[in-house]
Design a protein around this nucleic acid. Structure first.
Lengths: 259, 259
DNA sequence: GGAACGAACGTTCTAGAACCAGAG
DNA sequence: CTCTGGTTCTAGAACGTTCGTTCC
């Protein structure tokens, strides 16, 4: 901590991030030899440049690699300096006075350590920013087109969903109807069987001992129901019919779809 | 057609769209009195400015409302003039030569009528362009967010569609199964009736004249099938069973949904 | 005639962009 | 080589000025 930046002369060590332009500018403004062309303003908050022609030709080359006032001003702006605009006082000020004043909040006479706070404006990696902006303005329409396309797909899908929903509802109704019919059929079958049993019992009571064949295998349905194509006893038939499983297929609950 | 723009002096009438800057510049370059500070290049395709300090202080105020070289250059650029860059020939050219050269394809010595083709670059009505660009870059994120949102909805809808598709397939399978069971049941019923008919005919053949009651109305199913709770003749039963309608509910075709 | 308005041009200050140069 | 700062030319942006048009 030997160099704590207190002095205005000597080497600045700690955080020597100050670019050459700022140190050169500071030296330039401080130098008494150049005061006729560039010097601090009386209050030390800004500096003046007199006679840009002489300044650019005589002073700038000593501190920079050019002799153009425009380049000097460009650098000042790059570092955040602003030109101090003077109000024209009519004819009170002689119009030939070539006086330009620049100012920066951290460029103060006697406060050289503040130079560290002056930052060069970052060039937005021209390619990136420009291309991004160009892409933005150029591709906004593309994005919107894509969004429109997606919306169209959404609508198509919506109609498909509605169709499927209706189909689903019809299917559920069909399933319910079929189940009901199946139950009714089953009851009819049961009653038929019960009637048959009663009939057979009545025949037995009447002394009929003759065995009655079950002629379930006629020619019209032999090919479609081969397992019933043989002759069965009445008891076997009854057992076979009642053993038919109840309709209970596992089904998901009806899906709810927003219309 | 008295004034056909051929002369280099006098009033230009037809299409006097040439801004003051261009006519002033032309006069300035043509004027022999200012040749030491501004003049045509030897081939007449460009002009030179020597000693910017003297030029800006002595010449510019005579033709414009300022004495700043920067403003003059800005106007040149606004009208499409380009600076002609000179290749530095090492020490062969004296470095102190203050020589600036500008060129425009329609600023040619002796071709004053071409000035009409020099157009000032339009200022993009700063507000509009800037706001549009800002809107673009600001709203791109919004659009992208919306797109993401839509994508999320798409995925949700996709899963719903898949669920509905599976449900639909299960329903179709169920319907097919139920129809098959119904058909089988119907065949069974038909065969039972056929058997009954055969049985009754056998009984008749055997001389049994006693009328056999149809006891289809037992206590266990009387409440669920009231229309069968009375006694029917065998013929009536058969007709009733065969009159049960075939399962033919109008259903849409299975919906095809992309997975 | 003249007041109000708008469009194009003019002036000024600042920033963009391309290119260069030197340090790490 | 890459990265940061420097130099140069051009453009952006804000504001002023001029001039023609319109409406009273």
């Amino acid at each position: 901590m030997e160099f704590h930046g207190g002095g205005s002369a000597g080497i600045v060590v700690s955080g020597n991030n100050v670019p050459a332009f700022l140190t050169n500018l500071w030296t330039l403004v401080e130098d008494p030899d150049t005061d006729p062309l560039i010097c601090w303003s009386p209050n030390g908050n800004s500096f003046h440049v007199f006679d840009q022609g002489r300044f650019s030709k005589e002073v700038l080359p000593k501190y920079f690699k050019h002799n153009n006032m425009a380049s000097f001003v460009r650098q000042l702006n790059m570092y955040g300096f602003r030109k101090v605009v003077h109000i024209e006082q009519g004819g009170l000020v002689k119009p030939e006075k070539d006086d330009t004043e620049f100012q920066h909040p951290y460029f103060i006479r006697g406060q050289e350590h503040l130079l560290e706070n002056i930052k060069r404006k970052v060039t937005n990696v021209s390619n990136v920013k420009h291309e991004e902006l160009k892409m933005s303005s150029d591709d906004v329409s593309k994005i919107l087109t894509n969004v429109q396309h997606i919306k169209g797909k959404q609508e198509t899908i919506d109609s498909k969903i509605i169709a499927m929903k209706h189909e689903n509802e019809a299917l559920w109704r069909e399933v319910a109807s079929l189940r009901q019919k199946h139950a009714q059929q089953q009851k009819v079958v049961n009653k038929l069987i019960q009637f048959l049993v009663t009939l057979v019992q009545s025949n037995r009571v009447l002394g009929m001992k003759r065995k009655i064949p079950l002629m379930l295998g006629d020619s019209s349905s032999a090919h479609s129901m081969p397992k019933y194509s043989r002759q069965y006893s009445l008891e076997r038939l009854q057992a076979s019919l009642q053993a038919s499983p109840a309709i209970s297929v596992s089904l998901p609950l009806p899906t709810t779809v927003a219309g």
